[in-house]
Design a protein around this nucleic acid. Sequence first.
DNA 1: ATAGAATCGGAGAGATCCCTCCGGTTGTTG
DNA 2: CAACAACCGGAGGGATCTCTCCGATTCTAT
Lengths: 189, 189
Amino acid sequence: MGDDHSSARPLRADARRNRERVLQIAQEALASDGLTISFDEIARRAGFGVGTVYRHFPTKEALFEAVLLGRIERFVADARALATAEDPEKALFAWFAKVVEQASGNQALCDMLDSGAGMRVSLQDDLGRAVARLLVRAQRAGAARGDLAGEDVLDLLRGCLVAERRARARGASVRMVDVICDGMRVKGA
Amino acid sequence: MGDDHSSARPLRADARRNRERVLQIAQEALASDGLTISFDEIARRAGFGVGTVYRHFPTKEALFEAVLLGRIERFVADARALATAEDPEKALFAWFAKVVEQASGNQALCDMLDSGAGMRVSLQDDLGRAVARLLVRAQRAGAARGDLAGEDVLDLLRGCLVAERRARARGASVRMVDVICDGMRVKGA
DNA sequence: ATAGAATCGGAGAGATCCCTCCGGTTGTTG
DNA sequence: CAACAACCGGAGGGATCTCTCCGATTCTAT
């Protein structure tokens, strides 16, 4: 097995700097190239040997999770915070739009939300529950189609990321997220 | 270079059978595993050596195109046929739903529509033009949002494929395509 | 400054993947 | 039923990817 990535001993100063740089470069590489980027390529872009990067992150997945998991956890936290907002309609659609806004520019984030690769099951569950709460409140307020389930909203989110990402790349004037959110609203309102 | 895949000489009977079997297996493998499936794996599932498969299809892309391109060409043909339908609203949304219906169950078809990998530029253009025609007519009839462009519809289609595919996999009762098409309609109708 | 520990670098093992090559096999034709 | 062309099989070349190992280097504490 590799090294102790669990202990409490503080890193040496240079190792600390290098670790930070790896995270920084990995973040950029993942945003533009997605989860399929290779470990070797990240090490190369950061200017380190692969051994160095593996010293800090025992596995490719560990590095990717270090970069991305926090962002998804924040999405969950946002959803929870909005679960008690005064306007349930705004809460659901503002959350949806915010996630799309922040994730559609990051290929790896889209990949992870879509495939669930590298997401602990508990995190997926948390996301699902938080979204379901937002949805139910919006439905009770008559602001969202009553036949939708929480999982439907998540799948629409994943689809929306694909659409919005492409639309942005070509400078579309219409936001796909507006179109899709509109579809989630009640029809004959 | 490999063999003549262009001449007019008829294939030997056994080669013909084998070619058909390769296409059949490749079709199934692509539908379930998508464009990332390996050539070796397809040969293995078909029960042939890789050399045999390469004899019939000079490249991985050639095989994939042989399986998939016809389906996409049919989508284009459908769109063209509907360009003169009497009900422009139905024409656009029925076409959209039909493509989603037929492609969402086929991973490779979704991949190809999304990435354009292996699609001649002319085919992409044909698709874009045909969709734009359907859209413009629907807009003139007041059935689709006036601020949408042809490319928007294509991007929404790609997103819809992602959403619908997942929704189907878990047996959702709501069709994502209905939600998204509803979003493309005019709001205060 | 110097010993000793922590860190770095990158060659390379082991897995795939795409594709080629050619000896052995099978179908076809006179 | 020969004899030849057409076809098949799969070993293996060259790339690329993840990850390991360990000698060389750099930091830090005395």
